[in-house]
Simulated assay, not measured.
Amino acid sequence: MKELKYSFAQITAREYKNLKQPNEHLYKKIMFSKNLNTDRILETLQNAGVSFITINDPEYPLLLKETYDPPYIIYYKGDISLLKKTSFAIVGSRKATTYTKAALNYIIPHLKDYVIISGLAYGADEIAHKISIANNIPTIGVLGFGHNTHYPKTTEQTRSIIEQNYLTISEFPPDSEIERWKFVSRNRIIAGISEGTLVTEAEIKSGSLITLEIAMDENRHAFCLPGNMTSSLSIGTNLRIQEGCIPVVFPEDITTILNESKIN
Protein backbone atom coordinates (compact mmCIF):
# COMPACT_ATOMS: atom_id res chain seq x y z
CA MET A 1 0.00 0.00 0.00
CA LYS A 2 2.83 2.40 0.80
CA GLU A 3 4.32 1.80 -2.65
CA LEU A 4 0.98 2.56 -4.29
CA LYS A 5 0.43 5.75 -2.30
CA TYR A 6 4.00 6.90 -2.95
CA SER A 7 3.52 6.36 -6.67
CA PHE A 8 0.39 8.52 -6.70
CA ALA A 9 2.32 11.23 -4.89
CA GLN A 10 5.08 10.95 -7.52
CA ILE A 11 2.56 11.33 -10.33
CA THR A 12 1.15 14.53 -8.89
CA ALA A 13 4.49 16.08 -7.95
CA ARG A 14 6.12 15.28 -11.28
CA GLU A 15 3.21 16.51 -13.37
CA TYR A 16 2.98 19.77 -11.43
CA LYS A 17 6.67 20.32 -12.09
CA ASN A 18 6.09 19.80 -15.82
CA LEU A 19 3.10 22.14 -15.92
CA LYS A 20 4.98 25.24 -17.07
CA GLN A 21 2.29 26.18 -19.56
CA PRO A 22 -1.48 25.62 -19.44
CA ASN A 23 -2.29 22.16 -20.80
CA GLU A 24 -5.78 20.74 -20.48
CA HIS A 25 -4.70 17.13 -20.97
CA LEU A 26 -1.98 17.37 -18.31
CA TYR A 27 -4.29 19.17 -15.91
CA LYS A 28 -6.83 16.37 -16.20
CA LYS A 29 -4.13 13.81 -15.39
CA ILE A 30 -3.06 15.77 -12.32
CA MET A 31 -6.60 16.13 -10.99
CA PHE A 32 -7.26 12.46 -11.69
CA SER A 33 -4.18 11.42 -9.68
CA LYS A 34 -4.89 13.78 -6.77
CA ASN A 35 -8.41 12.46 -6.26
CA LEU A 36 -7.58 8.73 -6.20
CA ASN A 37 -8.48 6.75 -3.09
CA THR A 38 -5.74 4.15 -2.64
CA ASP A 39 -7.56 2.10 0.00
CA ARG A 40 -10.57 1.71 -2.25
CA ILE A 41 -8.34 0.91 -5.24
CA LEU A 42 -6.56 -1.88 -3.37
CA GLU A 43 -9.89 -3.41 -2.35
CA THR A 44 -11.14 -3.15 -5.96
CA LEU A 45 -7.94 -4.74 -7.29
CA GLN A 46 -8.40 -7.75 -5.05
CA ASN A 47 -12.07 -8.15 -6.03
CA ALA A 48 -11.34 -7.80 -9.74
CA GLY A 49 -8.31 -10.08 -9.85
CA VAL A 50 -6.16 -7.21 -11.11
CA SER A 51 -2.56 -6.66 -9.99
CA PHE A 52 -0.21 -3.71 -10.36
CA ILE A 53 3.44 -2.83 -10.69
CA THR A 54 5.13 0.52 -10.26
CA ILE A 55 7.94 2.14 -12.18
CA ASN A 56 10.36 0.87 -9.52
CA ASP A 57 9.51 -2.81 -10.03
CA PRO A 58 11.87 -5.08 -12.05
CA GLU A 59 8.95 -6.16 -14.29
CA TYR A 60 8.48 -2.60 -15.53
CA PRO A 61 9.45 -2.40 -19.23
CA LEU A 62 12.73 -0.52 -19.77
CA LEU A 63 11.67 1.12 -23.05
CA LEU A 64 8.58 2.61 -21.42
CA LYS A 65 10.61 3.85 -18.48
CA GLU A 66 12.82 5.81 -20.89
CA THR A 67 9.91 7.77 -22.37
CA TYR A 68 9.11 11.40 -21.62
CA ASP A 69 5.97 10.60 -19.63
CA PRO A 70 6.04 7.01 -18.31
CA PRO A 71 3.10 5.86 -16.19
CA TYR A 72 4.17 5.39 -12.58
CA ILE A 73 1.68 2.57 -12.10
CA ILE A 74 0.62 -0.18 -14.49
CA TYR A 75 -2.43 -2.25 -13.62
CA TYR A 76 -2.53 -5.63 -15.31
CA LYS A 77 -4.36 -8.88 -15.81
CA GLY A 78 -2.52 -11.87 -17.24
CA ASP A 79 1.12 -12.79 -17.82
CA ILE A 80 3.23 -9.86 -16.58
CA SER A 81 6.42 -11.48 -17.92
CA LEU A 82 5.37 -10.39 -21.44
CA LEU A 83 6.33 -6.83 -20.52
CA LYS A 84 9.99 -7.89 -20.53
CA LYS A 85 9.86 -9.21 -24.10
CA THR A 86 10.51 -7.13 -27.23
CA SER A 87 7.28 -5.60 -28.49
CA PHE A 88 5.94 -4.25 -31.77
CA ALA A 89 2.82 -2.08 -32.02
CA ILE A 90 0.17 -2.37 -34.72
CA VAL A 91 -2.62 0.19 -34.91
CA GLY A 92 -4.95 1.60 -37.52
CA SER A 93 -8.43 2.79 -38.35
CA ARG A 94 -11.59 1.63 -36.61
CA LYS A 95 -13.01 1.57 -40.15
CA ALA A 96 -10.29 -0.85 -41.30
CA THR A 97 -11.02 -2.57 -44.59
CA THR A 98 -10.17 -6.07 -45.81
CA TYR A 99 -6.82 -4.59 -46.88
CA THR A 100 -5.73 -4.33 -43.23
CA LYS A 101 -6.77 -7.92 -42.54
CA ALA A 102 -5.03 -9.29 -45.63
CA ALA A 103 -1.87 -7.31 -44.95
CA LEU A 104 -1.68 -8.38 -41.29
CA ASN A 105 -2.32 -12.02 -42.21
CA TYR A 106 0.77 -11.66 -44.39
CA ILE A 107 2.92 -9.70 -41.93
CA ILE A 108 2.18 -10.95 -38.41
CA PRO A 109 3.32 -14.59 -38.87
CA HIS A 110 6.80 -13.15 -39.56
CA LEU A 111 6.82 -11.41 -36.14
CA LYS A 112 7.04 -14.53 -33.97
CA ASP A 113 9.98 -13.08 -32.04
CA TYR A 114 7.88 -10.15 -30.84
CA VAL A 115 4.90 -9.41 -28.63
CA ILE A 116 2.21 -7.61 -30.63
CA ILE A 117 0.86 -4.52 -28.89
CA SER A 118 -2.43 -2.83 -29.73
CA GLY A 119 -5.33 -1.00 -28.11
CA LEU A 120 -8.23 -3.49 -28.31
CA ALA A 121 -10.27 -1.00 -30.32
CA TYR A 122 -12.70 -2.06 -33.03
CA GLY A 123 -11.09 -2.40 -36.45
CA ALA A 124 -7.34 -2.66 -37.00
CA ASP A 125 -6.52 -3.17 -33.31
CA GLU A 126 -8.80 -6.18 -32.90
CA ILE A 127 -7.63 -7.62 -36.23
CA ALA A 128 -4.01 -7.42 -35.04
CA HIS A 129 -4.86 -9.13 -31.74
CA LYS A 130 -6.91 -11.89 -33.40
CA ILE A 131 -4.28 -12.73 -36.01
CA SER A 132 -1.60 -12.80 -33.31
CA ILE A 133 -3.71 -15.22 -31.24
CA ALA A 134 -4.38 -17.41 -34.28
CA ASN A 135 -0.62 -17.66 -34.87
CA ASN A 136 0.25 -18.29 -31.20
CA ILE A 137 2.09 -14.97 -31.04
CA PRO A 138 1.84 -13.22 -27.64
CA THR A 139 -0.21 -10.04 -27.65
CA ILE A 140 -0.85 -7.25 -25.14
CA GLY A 141 -3.97 -5.12 -25.08
CA VAL A 142 -3.48 -1.60 -23.72
CA LEU A 143 -6.72 -0.25 -22.25
CA GLY A 144 -7.81 3.38 -22.26
CA PHE A 145 -9.91 2.85 -19.10
CA GLY A 146 -9.89 0.67 -15.98
CA HIS A 147 -10.08 -3.12 -16.03
CA ASN A 148 -13.66 -3.15 -14.72
CA THR A 149 -14.80 -1.29 -17.84
CA HIS A 150 -14.82 -2.39 -21.46
CA TYR A 151 -15.27 -0.61 -24.76
CA PRO A 152 -16.28 -1.42 -27.42
CA LYS A 153 -18.56 -4.37 -26.69
CA THR A 154 -17.48 -6.11 -29.89
CA THR A 155 -13.91 -6.71 -28.64
CA GLU A 156 -14.91 -8.11 -25.25
CA GLN A 157 -14.42 -11.77 -26.24
CA THR A 158 -11.01 -11.01 -27.72
CA ARG A 159 -10.02 -9.23 -24.52
CA SER A 160 -11.13 -12.25 -22.46
CA ILE A 161 -8.89 -14.56 -24.53
CA ILE A 162 -5.97 -12.15 -24.16
CA GLU A 163 -6.38 -11.95 -20.37
CA GLN A 164 -6.54 -15.74 -20.07
CA ASN A 165 -3.46 -16.39 -22.20
CA TYR A 166 -1.51 -13.15 -22.56
CA LEU A 167 -1.87 -9.70 -20.94
CA THR A 168 -3.92 -6.53 -20.69
CA ILE A 169 -2.54 -3.38 -19.05
CA SER A 170 -3.81 0.06 -18.09
CA GLU A 171 -2.45 3.06 -16.21
CA PHE A 172 -5.95 3.66 -14.82
CA PRO A 173 -7.40 1.99 -11.67
CA PRO A 174 -10.04 -0.71 -12.29
CA ASP A 175 -13.11 1.48 -11.77
CA SER A 176 -11.92 4.26 -14.11
CA GLU A 177 -14.57 5.03 -16.71
CA ILE A 178 -14.26 6.01 -20.36
CA GLU A 179 -13.10 9.56 -21.13
CA ARG A 180 -11.65 10.83 -24.40
CA TRP A 181 -8.36 12.09 -22.90
CA LYS A 182 -7.54 8.64 -21.53
CA PHE A 183 -7.27 7.20 -25.04
CA VAL A 184 -4.57 9.73 -25.87
CA SER A 185 -2.71 8.61 -22.74
CA ARG A 186 -3.15 5.00 -23.83
CA ASN A 187 -1.59 5.80 -27.21
CA ARG A 188 1.66 6.98 -25.62
CA ILE A 189 1.96 3.65 -23.78
CA ILE A 190 1.40 1.63 -26.97
CA ALA A 191 4.13 3.62 -28.73
CA GLY A 192 6.49 3.88 -25.77
CA ILE A 193 6.55 0.20 -24.91
CA SER A 194 7.31 -0.89 -28.48
CA GLU A 195 10.44 -1.01 -30.65
CA GLY A 196 8.36 0.17 -33.58
CA THR A 197 4.82 1.05 -34.60
CA LEU A 198 2.96 0.09 -37.79
CA VAL A 199 -0.13 1.96 -38.97
CA THR A 200 -2.17 -0.06 -41.44
CA GLU A 201 -4.84 2.39 -42.60
CA ALA A 202 -5.60 5.91 -41.40
CA GLU A 203 -7.59 8.90 -42.51
CA ILE A 204 -5.85 12.26 -42.65
CA LYS A 205 -6.90 12.91 -39.03
CA SER A 206 -6.68 9.71 -37.05
CA GLY A 207 -5.87 8.61 -33.49
CA SER A 208 -3.53 5.96 -34.87
CA LEU A 209 -1.41 8.72 -36.43
CA ILE A 210 -1.09 10.28 -32.97
CA THR A 211 0.39 6.96 -31.80
CA LEU A 212 2.78 7.03 -34.76
CA GLU A 213 3.86 10.59 -33.99
CA ILE A 214 4.52 9.67 -30.36
CA ALA A 215 6.62 6.73 -31.56
CA MET A 216 8.71 9.06 -33.71
CA ASP A 217 9.07 11.54 -30.83
CA GLU A 218 10.39 8.68 -28.68
CA ASN A 219 12.89 7.70 -31.40
CA ARG A 220 11.09 4.47 -32.27
CA HIS A 221 10.77 2.99 -35.75
CA ALA A 222 7.69 4.24 -37.62
CA PHE A 223 6.12 2.08 -40.34
CA CYS A 224 3.10 2.57 -42.61
CA LEU A 225 1.29 0.45 -45.16
CA PRO A 226 1.18 2.26 -48.49
CA GLY A 227 -2.34 2.26 -49.85
CA ASN A 228 -4.63 3.11 -52.71
CA MET A 229 -4.35 6.83 -53.45
CA THR A 230 -8.11 7.04 -54.01
CA SER A 231 -8.95 5.61 -50.56
CA SER A 232 -9.60 8.05 -47.72
CA LEU A 233 -8.22 5.40 -45.34
CA SER A 234 -4.83 5.52 -47.06
CA ILE A 235 -4.33 9.28 -47.20
CA GLY A 236 -2.95 9.43 -43.64
CA THR A 237 -0.46 6.60 -44.14
CA ASN A 238 0.61 7.71 -47.62
CA LEU A 239 1.31 11.22 -46.36
CA ARG A 240 3.40 9.87 -43.47
CA ILE A 241 5.44 7.78 -45.92
CA GLN A 242 5.95 10.91 -47.98
CA GLU A 243 7.22 12.61 -44.81
CA GLY A 244 9.73 9.85 -44.06
CA CYS A 245 7.98 6.88 -42.39
CA ILE A 246 9.10 3.46 -43.58
CA PRO A 247 6.78 1.90 -46.19
CA VAL A 248 6.00 -1.78 -45.61
CA VAL A 249 5.80 -3.76 -48.84
CA PHE A 250 7.16 -7.03 -47.44
CA PRO A 251 7.30 -8.34 -43.82
CA GLU A 252 11.09 -8.14 -44.09
CA ASP A 253 10.78 -4.36 -44.28
CA ILE A 254 9.91 -4.56 -40.59
CA THR A 255 11.95 -7.52 -39.36
CA THR A 256 15.22 -6.41 -40.99
CA ILE A 257 15.12 -3.02 -39.27
CA LEU A 258 14.07 -4.47 -35.91
CA ASN A 259 16.83 -7.10 -36.08
CA GLU A 260 19.40 -4.43 -36.90
CA SER A 261 18.27 -2.52 -33.82
CA LYS A 262 18.90 -5.60 -31.67
CA ILE A 263 22.47 -5.85 -32.99
CA ASN A 264 23.15 -2.17 -32.39
Rank of each mutant, 00 (worst) to 15 (best):
L167T: 00
G244A: 09
H147Y: 10
N264S: 08
G123M: 07
K153C: 02
L120H: 03
S232D: 00
G227Y: 03
H150N: 11
I169T: 02
F172C: 04
I90F: 02
E24P: 01
L239D: 06
Q164M: 11
P71Y: 03
L167N: 06
T256M: 11
E179V: 10
Q21F: 08
T237S: 07
E171S: 06
Y16W: 15
T149Q: 13
I178Y: 04
I241T: 10
Y72L: 08
V184C: 00
I11G: 03
R14Q: 14
P247S: 12
E126T: 06
K182R: 15
I73Y: 06
L209G: 02
S206N: 15
I41K: 12
I117F: 00
Y106V: 01
R188Y: 10
F183H: 05
T154Y: 01
I193R: 01
Y75T: 02
Q21L: 09
L64M: 13
D175G: 05
G78E: 11
Y114H: 03
I116N: 00
I90C: 00
T149K: 13
N187W: 10
S261F: 10
E163F: 05
K95I: 04
T211M: 05
S206I: 15
I11M: 15
Y166S: 12
R40C: 06
I11D: 13
P22A: 06
T154K: 13
G227R: 08
N135G: 10
E126M: 09
E252G: 14
R188Q: 12
P109H: 10
N37A: 04
K85Q: 02
E177Y: 06
L64T: 14
T154Q: 05
G236I: 13
I178T: 13
Y99M: 03
N37G: 01
L239G: 01
K85L: 00
M229K: 15
T149V: 14
T139D: 01
P22W: 02
L36W: 06
E171P: 13
L258K: 05
T211H: 05
I41C: 11
T197V: 15
E156S: 13
E126R: 07
T98Q: 11
M216C: 03
R188E: 12
Y151I: 09
F88K: 00
S93M: 06
I189V: 07
L111T: 00
N56E: 09
E201S: 10
D125Q: 02
I210R: 01
N105W: 06
G92R: 07
I107L: 07
H221V: 15
Q164L: 15
L225N: 10
E15S: 11
F145C: 14
R94V: 09
A103Y: 14
I190W: 01
P61R: 02
N105A: 09
P109V: 01
Q10S: 13
E126D: 15
D175R: 14
F32C: 03
A191D: 14
Q164D: 14
R159D: 08
M1H: 05
P61S: 06
A222W: 03
T256V: 04
Q46R: 15
E24N: 13
I254A: 07
T256E: 12
I127E: 11
V249K: 06
R240S: 07
N228T: 09
E156C: 09
E43N: 08
H25A: 01
L82P: 00
I193P: 03
F8P: 01
V115S: 00
N136S: 15
I137T: 07
L64Q: 08
Q157F: 14
